[in-house]
Design a binder for these strands. Sequence first.
DNA 1: GAGCACTGC
Length: 781
Amino acid sequence: MSKKRKNDAAGNVIRIGDKVISLEGYLTKKPKTEDSRASEPGSDTADAARQQPESSKTDLTPDGTKKSSPSEFVPSRPPAGDPQYFEARKALPLWTRQDEIRRILRQKDVLVLVGETGSGKSTQVPQFLYQEKWCQRRRVRIKPSEGEKAQEVSVGGMIAITQPRRVAATTLAHRVSREAGTPLTGQKGGGDGNGADSKGLVGYSVRFDHRVPAGTKIKYLTEGMLLQELLRDPYLRQYSAIIVDEIHERSVDVDLLSGFLKQIISGDKAGRGGIPLKVVIMSATANVEGIRQFFSTAGPGGSKSNRPQSSVEYLQIEGRQFPVDIIHTPKPVPDIQEALLKTIFKLHTEEALSDKYGRKDILAFLTGQEEIESAQKLIEEYASTLAPGLPKVKVFPLFGQLSMEAQHEAFQPIKGGHTRKIVLATNIAETSVTVPGVRYVIDCGKAKLKQFRSRLGMESLLAKPISKSSAIQRAGRAGREGPGKCYRLYTQETYDSLYDRDLPEILRTDILSAILTMKARGVQDVFSFPLMDPPQPESVEKALLHLHILGALDDNGAITETGRRMVQFPVSPPYARVLLAAAEPKYDCLLEVIDIISCITAGEDIFHQLRTEEAREEVEEYRKELFRREGDLLTYLTTMQLYAAENTDRVKWCKDRKINLRNMKQALNIRKQLRGLCVRQGMMEQQPPDPQPFSPTSPEQASSILKCFLTGFSIKTAILAPDNSYVTSHGKHVIAIHPASVLHGQKKEAIMFLEHVYTQKSYAKKVSVIQAVWIAEALEG
DNA sequence: GAGCACTGC
C-alpha cells in the first residue's frame, strides 16, 4: 500500500512486476480533482461527445451540459478568454510552457510536441498562438508563374488544427469557443457572416457540418477536410499555421497531409509570397523520432538548392497519470475465454466496488463481436452462480456495429448500487470512446486488423498481436480516474516480442485513393512523394495500373479529365468511376447508382445481422419486399428507395426490418451530397424532389445498373466452375459468397462482387448476379 | 453461415 502511495505522488509510471517504468509521453494524464474535472479541456471533452455524437451536434455541449444561449457568448474581451474557464486552463501542465511554445515558433517553422491526450494540447496550443504576429493575415504579391500575371493575394490569418475523427473536431471547437468566450455560429456550408453574427474566434469544418464564423482564427477540421482544401488551395494560403493533432494514429490522410506540408515548408515559399507556414505536429506517444526526422530533412528538390533545411524543434510536455499496475500471466494462456472469466471473477470477488476516486469497473479488450458475445454469455452464466451476498455484475458489449443506444449504455453509470460494470470492447475503446469509471483493464493482447494484400488484390481481416504502444494505450485506460490495474492475458516475454508501434494504415490498405489524391494535387512522380512510411513500390505500381484501367490516368501516368472528375467525389476511385458511367446515356442510371453507393459507403452494413432463427423469422416478411434476386446491389437500391419514400415513421420502419438507422441516416446524407456534386458537375439537371413514390426497378434497368457497376469492378468478377465453386476471373482464386449476402448459397453463371475479404476463408461481399458475356464487354470498355 | 476502427465540399 505504501508503495502505491509513493508512486501516486510521482505519477506517470507503470509497474511491471517489480519494475517501475516511466510513461512519460505515452498515456500520462493529469489526475483529476473534483474541481478541475468539470471543466477540464482536452480529449476528455472530446471523449464525452464521442459517446453521444448526436447530442454534440444539437443542444448539448461537449461536457453534456446545456448549451448557453448565443447572447451569453457575446465577447467582452475576446482575446482574454472567458474567466469562467481561466482557472482550469491555468492548472494544465501545458500552461506554464506557453511562452516557450510561442518563442519556439517565432524562430522555427516546425514544432513536434509530445503531450498526453489529457494535457489540453488540443485546446490550448492554438489559443497560445493565434495572436502571434506571424499569425496575422497579410497581402502579398505572388510571383507570376509562366503565362500568368502577377497578383496580390492574402496569405495567413488562420490556424488549422486537424483531427482524425469528426466528433473530436466539432467537440474541441465547441470547447475552445466557450473558453474564448466567443460564439460558434455560422451557417452550414461556411460562415458568410450574415450581419447579425458577432465575430467568432473559433470554427470547424467536417463533412456535412461546417461552422466558420466571420473572423475565425482557429479552425478545427478533419484530416480529410484539409486534404480537400488542398485541392483548391495548394499552398494553404488561408493559414498561418497547421496543427496536426493525434499524428500517432497515422491514418492514411495524416500521412498524405504530412507529405504535402513537408513540400510546402521545404519549398521556396513562392506560392505563399514568401510567408512561411508554421507546422505543429502533436502526438500522444513519445516514439516520434521518425516523424521528427521526416520533417527535419529537406524534401525532394530541396536538397539540390542551397536552401537551408527547415528546422524542427521538439518539446515534450510532462504529464501526470495515476499509476497502473501491470500484471502479466506467468505462462501463456491456452484459452482466452477461460483466462478472461477467471480474471474477471477474481477481481470482482476480491476488490471493492468503489473507493475514494470513484467506481472500480472493468474494461476488457477483446478482438471482435463474436468473442465479445460468447464471453458475455459465459460471464452471465457464471455470475448467476455467485453467492447471494456478493455484488452483482452487469455486462455491456461495446463494438462499432452496435446501435447508438446500446453503445450508450456502456457509458452510463450503472443502475442499482450493488453492481459492478463489465465492459467488453473491441479496439473502439482504445481511441474512439472513453468508458468512465474504469479502474481495471483486461487486455487479450490481440486485435482484428484489416490488411490489403496488394499482390492478391484482396483484403484480410484477422486477429493479430497488438503493438507495445497499443498495449500501453489499453493499460492507460485503467488510470484515468484513479490508480488502476491492467491484467494482460499474455506473458512478459510475449509483450517484449511485440512491435513497438502499429503498422501505419498506409502500409496495410489499398492505396488507390491515396495515389489518385496525390495525382490530383499535382504530384507527378508518386514514387518520390515524401511519405513517412512509403508503401512497397509494387503496391504503388499496382495502384497506378488499376487507376489506368479505371481511366483516371493516361498512358503516361498523368491524371485524365476523368480522373479529375473522380476525385471530386468522396468515394473510392472504383465507385467514382461507376458514378461517372451512370450519367452516360448508355447506362442512364445515375439516381439508382447514387442510392446504392450511398448505402454501401454509409457504414459496415445497413442490415443488422441476425443471430437467431427467431429474429430471422420475425423480419422475414418485412425484408422479403426489399430483397432482389439480382443480388445485394439491387437490394440496397430497393431499401433506399423504400426508406426515402417512407414518410411517416422511419425509425419504426428500420426497427421492423432490423436495419441500422444510424447508417441509413448517414446514407441519406451521402445521397444528398452525391446528388449535389452530380448537379455541380453537370451530370444531372437538378436534385429530384424527395420523397418519391416507390416504383420497382425493372429487370432491364437492373441489368443496366449492374453493367454500369462493371465499369469500376470488372476485375472483381467470378465464374461458376464445373465443381460448383466460384473462381475469380483475375487470379483464379476460389471464392465463396459471404453469408451476409442475399445470394449466399446460390449458384449462378457469373457474379460481380465489390469486396473480397479473407476471414475464415476467401469471401465475396456485396455480390450481384451477372452474365459471363458482360465481363468481356466491360473489359473492352 | 459470419461482422476491428476511422474518414471524404
